[in-house]
Amino acid sequence: MKIAVFASAAVIALAAGLGAAAARDQVQVAGSSTVLPYAKIVAESFGEAFPDFKTPVVESGGSGAGIKQFCEGVGEDKIDIANSSRPIKAEELDTCKANGVADVEEVKIGYDGIVFATDIAGPDFAIQPVDIYKALAAQVVVDGKLVDNPYTKWNEVNPAFPAWDIAAYIPGEKHGTREVFETKLLDVGCDKDALKAAGVADDAVAKTCIAVRKDGKAVDIDGDYTETLARIDSNKTGVGVFGLAFYENNADKLKVATVGGVVPSTETISSGEYPVSRPLFFYVKKAHIGVIPGLKEYVDFFISDDMIGPDSPLAQYGLVAAPDAEREEIRAKFDAGTTM
């Protein structure tokens, strides 16, 4: 009994004392779950290629949470890199600066495509942004009047579609993907003049355009693509939104839809033909470079062509590589140490 008391006292003392004293010798990364698989591949390859450094630790949790952690301050107990599937917002950068994270370097790693897919046995879908808007918006204009979305079947939206009940599994509101979905599809497909003609105030138009119906036909998925896949598995007439990489890993279960007549692929996305894509980033704390062992090497390794080039393991996983000139630019920018 006494030994146990002493042992636990020792553990607590050890934790308080050593915890503060221990120097961190591995890079710590947090952020976007979209960037996570890529960061994992890079971290693992980095550990194998540089036996002198420890393998970086990569946390997930979402772009917003990652940037928030990143902006908490400078020091060994704060993370070094935040992965993000969207650019950092001005107010987030302000928080960073207020907490002493003055120099933030932005590094773009490539592009991510967002695709629509149905069960493999389903018919071909050729989607235009306007179809998505009509099928999923909360309110649409019918005969010059703004009404709650009356469409219940896909063929009512567009006669070329099958007579399936509308059931779309779209990314939830906390996902970075949702923003792309709203700006590249709903907003594009929305006829703003018709909305204004139907009496929507000018400043409410943009908001009305991206409001998604809440009657159960559009289901927000707050988990990740595995959940969306499970929904499609159980509802064979559902339409799901996936990342290109996830689709390519499950192409034997899913059939991909074209958007604006373009089949999503790494080629069509990097050329900009396929409309629904977004850049992926990570943010580096400049104050940590040279302090945390391996941080500079990790970033250099990440943005080398071995990792983000067209034949790299990341491209094989589904990352759309940036064009050659842009990759050169990314490297030059990091070498120069340009901060935001």
Partner: peptide, 17 residues
């Protein structure tokens, strides 16, 4: 444990406590 005592992130000691 992390912000006040400055213990390392992701470490089992913090998880254990």
């Amino acid at each position: 444990f992390i912000n006040f005592f400055g213990m390392p992130r992701s470490a089992p000691i913090v998880g254990g406590l």
